[in-house]
Design a protein around this nucleic acid. Structure first.
Length: 505
DNA sequence: CAAAAGGAAGGGC
DNA sequence: GCCCTTCCTTTTG
């Protein structure tokens, strides 16, 4: 599968079919795009008790845009007042990894929705849009998303960069923030924007939801200030972002206490993973999943590596939300004072977060000894760093249950991930690993190893077994014949294997 | 010749 | 005990 479109003005799609993008772009107010500063890379939408984090990142390629335009508009329409939890998005609507439900929801914030929409129209003739001028503005976009399943992680991307946290006094977090005063300050520095109140219906509906303000005793922002120009108020988001992040942490803390699990998803055992999944499903009022244990046999480290696509494949109705929520947990925990930025060296006594198993934050993968770029991508996709991880300490996560760390997927002794799980991870990212391993018949669980050396090498890296080769890997696969995890295909083919039910699910 | 198949021993957890 | 890993031999295409 080629790279999926990264940006999707989902909320606007609900109103405008894709083939009307170019017409819609004519109404875009490009003056809203900031000229001198970056757009806030992360925005929380609050609708108690859930918090959604939104990230905007690199613009899609031309191919992605074309593909994006070919995709059908989502069937659902935003209710405006109830953005969260999101519906079970079809994967095509906000494909992993560059896109996420968070991201697409963010489009409903209006300013970004318009922004993204304009990108969709780069190839479309538009009297008011000049592609070159738009491209000039692309550099202001934030870096690639910090997402675990990012096939093409940008070396620039990092949670610590995406989530801007103000050094807020914790005692003030729940207290009053005078956004209007901030607004006035900014308005003095910027010219007023043309009135565009004739449109933006979805944006208006979204902004009229004052749940977040009420919850935190905030004065509702004037709607016209958003529609008039995002640039004027974008700076005011940062306290809100910090606030929302704090709230996300507290939510996580509460759930951790309730479920007796670590704040660090990477430290969860399979049973804790199930507990968290059930809790999150209930939290979002999603239908309880049958055979949850069967569908999610991973521990937390492996779970964190699953792509959104894989979540949705296992749980079409709720996989998207679960994956998004897990991303939030990662980000929230990444912002812990004792968590480490990827730019920083991990220090003893501190719980590194995001753990090295989260590929988007793994600079070692970019600076390592990978022979080629594609391999770095694959490595970043599926394999954590070989860097040993210090043990988690209770002091690092005071509210978390002391859980024996499984090294975020790997320590010197290798991770606990099973080979069949690893293979399915590779298979779940055909755009990255398609040259090494691919599905022959997805429904029957038949796959082919196209590059045995490469797959073996990746497996060896994942397990910290430098001497791994295909002979050994295939021996392990054959062990699965006895265990009923895999079976020989009906017509024996070289390098072709087949998962047994239910492992082919 | 590479891959498939499988026996056997051993290590890490 | 499980899940590989390693080494080995034999068979197959």
């Amino acid at each position: 599968m080629p790279h999926s479109p990264q940006l999707k003005p989902q909320a606007f799609q609900a109103l405008t079919p894709p083939d009307q993008y170019s017409a819609y772009a004519d109404n875009f107010d490009l003056s809203m795009l900031p000229q001198d500063a970056g757009i806030p890379t992360t925005v929380y939408q609050y609708n108690a008790p859930q918090i959604k984090i939104e990230c905007a990142w690199d613009c899609p390629t031309d191919n992605q845009q074309q593909q994006q335009q070919q995709q059908p508009a989502p069937a659902y329409a935003s209710s405006g007042h109830q953005l969260i939890p999101p519906p079970a998005y079809p994967h095509s609507v906000y494909p992993s990894p560059q896109s996420s439900p968070l991201q697409t929801e963010f489009a409903s914030f209006g300013g970004y929705g318009k922004l993204h929409g304009s990108y969709d129209c780069l190839n479309s003739p538009s009297p008011s849009l000049d592609a070159s001028s738009i491209k000039q503005e692309l550099h202001i976009l934030p870096p690639s998303p910090p997402e675990s399943n990012c096939e093409t992680p940008s070396p620039r991307s990092a949670c610590s960069e995406s989530i801007k946290t103000e050094p807020l006094d914790s005692s003030d977090i729940e207290s009053f923030i005078d956004l209007n005063a901030l607004l006035q300050q900014q308005q003095q520095q910027t010219q007023s924007q043309p009135d565009t109140k004739a449109d933006h219906q979805v944006l208006r509906e979204c902004l009229e939801d004052t749940t977040f303000q009420k919850k935190h005793n905030l004065r509702p922002l004037a709607l016209e200030s958003f529609i008039g120009g995002l640039a004027e108020v974008r700076g005011d988001f940062e306290p809100v972002i910090s606030l929302a992040l704090e709230h996300a942490k507290r939510e996580a803390d509460a759930i951790c206490m309730e479920l007796q699990i670590s704040q660090d998803p990477n430290a969860w055992t399979p049973s804790q993973v199930h507990a968290w999944l059930r809790s999150t499903l209930a939290q979002f009022k999603l239908p309880p999943a049958a055979n949850l244990e069967l569908k999610f046999s991973e521990d937390g480290a492996a779970l964190a590596l699953l792509s959104e696509e894989e979540f949705m494949r296992r749980l079409p109705e709720s996989g998207s939300t679960l994956h998004a929520q897990l991303e939030i947990w990662k980000m929230a925990y990444a912002d812990q004072p004792n968590s480490q930025s990827i730019q920083q060296q991990q220090q003893p006594g501190l719980d590194p977060w995001p753990p090295a198993s989260y590929p988007m934050l793994n600079l070692d993968d970019f600076n390592g000894d990978s022979e080629d770029e594609e391999e770095m991508e694959v490595e970043a996709e599926v394999a954590p760093t070989p860097t040993p991880i210090t043990a988690v300490t209770a002091a690092a996560t005071p509210t978390s249950t002391p859980v024996k760390r499984t090294s975020g997927g790997r320590t010197g002794g290798g991770s606990h991930i099973h080979l069949w799980q690893f293979l399915k991870e590779l298979l779940a990212s055909p755009q990255v690993n398609g040259t090494a391993i691919r599905w022959i018949d997805r429904t029957k669980g038949i796959f082919k190893i196209e590059d045995s050396v490469r797959v073996a090498k990746l497996w060896g890296r994942r397990k910290n077994r430098p001497a791994m080769n295909y002979d050994k890997l295939s021996r392990s696969i054959r062990q699965y014949y006895k265990k009923g995890i895999m079976k020989k295909t009906e017509r024996s083919q070289r390098l072709v294997y087949q998962f047994c039910h239910p492992y082919n699910q």
